[in-house]
Amino acid sequence: MLQYTIRRILLIIPTLFFVALITFTLAKMAPGSPFDKNPDKPPSQATIDRWNRYYGLDKPVAEQFAMWLGNVARFDFGVSITRQRPVADIIGQGFPTTAQLGLQALFLSLAVALPLGIVSALRQNTIVDYASLFFATIGTTIPSFVIAIFFIYIFGVGLRLLPFVGWGTPQHMIMPTVILSLGSAAFLTRITRASMLEAVRQDYVRTARSKGLREQVVIVGHVLKNALIPVATVVGPAAAALITGSFIIETIFSVPGIGREYIRSIVALDYPVIMATTLLYAFFIVVANLTVDLVYGMLDPRIKVGK
């Protein structure tokens, strides 16, 4: 188990290396320079040369990548081209906001999905079940930015109940958090419900009933324990979905997090920021998946982790 964990942790490094390599290669293949943003007033060649030297863009590509890697190892992510600020500063400033948004959304989606999925499976084909299926279908089907539009129209523009620009007060957090959580909540509800339905019709549940156990004991002690294992395995992908969802939500609601910064850097081809943020996201996703795999190994006795 320990050996397996260590191996998995070490595997993070090559994975991140490839992510960085792909991102770097793609960014280098991009035509156009981040400096010619204003077509009416192109910067002089001398200025461009100076900037190129400053950002090390005059060196061969391989050397640039090596240099970049070396810097990253020292937690130096370079300087944003369009903002003229260290990337580490930009990320450091946005990170708490993004982390708060993401965690709130993750907890909210679990808090909604687990009870909803369980109840709708136990009350299959009742109004509760149909309502949760409806919610799950909407949430997994309609893209978050479209749902955001409807929310803003109803609660922001129409009822004027909630602000929809900026971040800070609890009121500001409600819409971004709810909408960001919606997709994952819907997805997890579906999985929980399906997994419960699968578990309740297993033979061992009948065995448990044949022992004379109370229905609550059968559900909690026998069904849930099995049904939640598949759910745990998709919390990783759900977390990844939250991360990518946060770009869009932060952009729509002008939330000052890394997601909005990321989209800005993508549009502006600000690749020091693109590189650093991509790497950061990849890191979180790898760690989330690793955690889930290890938890899975602990939850399911049939999985012999490390063998």
Partner: peptide, 10 residues
């Protein structure tokens, strides 16, 4: 393995 760490949308 690599794509696993690279969410589709990213």
């Amino acid at each position: 393995d690599v794509v696993y760490a690279f969410p589709d949308f990213l």
